[in-house]
Structures are given as structure tokens and as C-alpha cells.
Computed example of a mutant assay.
Amino acid sequence: MLGSDVMRGYNDMLILCLLLAGDSYGYAISREIEQRSGGEYPIKETTLYSAFRRLEKQGYIVPYQGSETQGRPRTYYTITDEGRKAYTAKCAEWRVLKTVVDRFAKEDMTDGSDS
């Protein structure tokens, strides 16, 4: 299972990715992240809502009140044009990061040289 420290820099990307498909709310987003990760990353509620606040502050998402569920209106989130641009930039950053880390991640750890 992945720890939150490993995923910290990419929570925003995961959320923005899901919002590209359509508006959604916290619980549904957290379940989708856990499902798509094959259960390897059950995002914590505090992590999720911290990310929502950060993304909103940056102008990447906009919250709005949706339909009531059990007497309480549900907060939905929609991605903005700036959020789409941020998602694209984060994906490009991920490709570079993955390339760099792959240069160090070895199956055979008998020595540190490339032979």
C-alpha cells in the first residue's frame, strides 16, 4: 500500500483527472481513487479535503452545493480552465519524474553500476 508521503505531490493530479470526467463530490472522488489504485491508495479524508482547499485557492476547482442527501446539501467540485492547464503540466512533470526514478529503480540490486 502506498503511503501518503509518496503520493503527496500527486494528489492534486488525481483529483483533477477525475474532475475532467465530470463534476463530483468528496466521497465519490475518494472511492474512485481507491478503486483505480487497486486498493493501493485509500486517500485519507483529511488529505482529500486539504487538497480541495488548495485547489480551490489556486483557482483550479470551484465548489458548489448539489442536491440534498439525508438532509444535508452535498458539495460538488468542478474543474476550471486553469485546473485543466495545471493537470496537463502535472502530467508532463510526472513523465519526467518517472523517467528519472526509473533510472535508479532496479530489479537486481547486487551492485550500483549499469552493466
Score class of each variant (00 low, 15 high):
1 M>S: 04
2 L>C: 06
3 G>N: 09
4 S>V: 12
5 D>E: 12
5 D>I: 10
5 D>P: 07
5 D>H: 14
6 V>M: 06
6 V>C: 04
8 R>M: 09
8 R>N: 09
8 R>K: 14
10 Y>A: 02
11 N>Y: 05
12 D>E: 11
17 C>K: 04
18 L>S: 11
18 L>C: 09
19 L>S: 00
19 L>F: 13
20 L>F: 13
21 A>L: 11
22 G>P: 08
22 G>L: 10
23 D>Y: 05
23 D>V: 03
24 S>M: 04
25 Y>K: 02
25 Y>A: 06
26 G>S: 15
28 A>K: 12
28 A>C: 07
28 A>L: 15
30 S>F: 03
30 S>Y: 03
30 S>P: 01
34 E>L: 14
35 Q>W: 11
36 R>C: 10
36 R>G: 12
38 G>D: 13
39 G>S: 04
41 Y>E: 04
41 Y>K: 03
42 P>F: 02
42 P>S: 14
46 T>Y: 14
47 T>E: 10
48 L>M: 05
48 L>P: 00
50 S>H: 08
51 A>E: 00
53 R>Y: 07
55 L>V: 08
55 L>N: 02
55 L>Y: 02
56 E>R: 06
59 G>T: 11
59 G>E: 11
60 Y>E: 00
64 Y>L: 10
65 Q>K: 12
65 Q>M: 13
67 S>A: 12
67 S>Y: 11
68 E>K: 09
72 R>D: 07
73 P>A: 07
77 Y>D: 02
77 Y>R: 01
78 T>H: 10
78 T>R: 12
79 I>C: 00
80 T>Y: 09
82 E>T: 05
83 G>N: 00
84 R>N: 04
85 K>C: 11
85 K>S: 15
86 A>N: 02
87 Y>H: 01
88 T>H: 13
88 T>L: 10
88 T>G: 12
89 A>M: 04
90 K>E: 08
90 K>M: 14
91 C>I: 04
92 A>D: 07
93 E>S: 08
93 E>V: 05
98 K>W: 13
98 K>T: 08
100 V>L: 09
100 V>D: 09
102 D>G: 04
103 R>W: 02
103 R>Q: 11
104 F>V: 07
109 M>P: 01
110 T>V: 15
114 D>R: 10
115 S>V: 11
